[in-house]
Design a protein around this nucleic acid. Structure first.
Lengths: 188, 188
DNA sequence: GCGAACTAACTAACCGTTTGATTAGTTACA
DNA sequence: TGTAACTAATCAAACGGTTAGTTAGTTCGC
């Protein structure tokens, strides 16, 4: 128990790495801090994950799998789908930041994550089907519509501080409602 | 001319820094590369800008001033305003990336840029006025509405590569139209 | 006691920042 | 006008701290 549990150590490292990378990104994140926060050792990181980049990949991969599982698409009710995405960001605040770091620091390097690609394709298909059935309007192509919905769901974590200062003071519930309403308006 | 023009050197450094920071961010950007790309010297950076962070601030500040000047708000026609923002991102592709690095790496450190704050406040006021006149619908508060419009204008530069791969193949004109249409839908 | 888990100490490279000196342009004065 | 004194611009080299990655040895469960 505790002191010699490889799986637990791996988990502690992953969790600490998630915090560190969410806060500082890949270039800014410090392996030493991650090891210390996980009450472990730098060498363990290289033993379990091979490299700093490998550690970030593991964090990102795990995060993507969780997110894909956590919020299945409901093409019949995209406003509520966006609301649930919003909820998932509230529950796991690192998701948006890690995804953004990934986009900025990892674009073009290495392969795309097939689990995410497949999930996106399936979601586009679900939207396209709903459009074909007439449940969803067709004034946007399915891929674009899905993209807009996902994009809007991240509205509140995308603003520069100078804008946040101007929009301050909305409750979580109100912020969620904005996302839901905005997606609903998109479908009108 | 050329070899001893302080202002020109400053400009070359700023331009090189803009490219470097847009590509790699603050932590990832390399002072050495910036100096080399500007055909100058590391020490010049410290002479003109004090520090790496000071250099980034100068880049960000200049960029904000340009953007604020380049795209004045037109509260009577928000879809077209969003379209013009989209155009400005196409023309100056580094804007969105620098703004994102700023948000991720600089949030909470130092003061907010008053030029941006003032511009945002004025824009919110313009939207609120238009709402009061009945030119704009009032189902979103003015600050939120403006935020959504700006957020939507950046739609195409905000997606993770795994999503870009799925939405590939839309022309610039089509992408612009999506932004305009999405904002129009928001106002319905 | 064997192998897996763990760790402190180490290293080699990197990188932001500074130094100290050189060069080019400008002013002042005879 | 000629030149000495001054200022601003430039740069190569070095410094000191940091950091990703490694090693070689120790501890512990089975």
């Amino acid at each position: 128990m505790g002191s010699r549990d490889a799986e637990a150590t791996r988990r502690r490292l992953l969790k600490a790495a998630r915090e560190e990378f969410a806060a500082y990104g890949i270039a800014g994140g410090r392996v030493e801090r991650i090891a210390a926060a996980a009450q472990s050792n730098k060498a363990q990181i290289y033993h379990y994950f091979g490299s700093k980049d490998g550690l970030f990949d593991a964090v990102f991969d795990a995060m993507c799998r969780e997110t894909v599982d956590a919020v299945p698409i409901d093409a019949e009710n995209l406003p509520e789908y966006a609301g649930r995405l919003f909820d998932s960001y509230e529950r796991r605040p690192w998701v948006q930041r890690i995804a953004t770091w990934y986009r900025l620091e990892r674009a073009g390097t290495g392969d795309l994550l097939s689990v995410v690609l497949a999930s996106n394709e399936a979601k586009v298909q679900a939207v396209a089907d709903a459009q074909a059935r007439g449940v969803l309007p067709a004034h946007f192509p399915a891929d674009v519509l899905l993209g807009l919905v996902i994009h809007l769901s991240g509205f509140w974590s995308s603003n520069v501080p100078e804008f946040d200062a101007v929009v301050a003071g909305h409750s979580t519930a109100a912020r969620r409602q904005v996302v839901v309403d905005a997606v609903a308006a998109l479908l009108s």
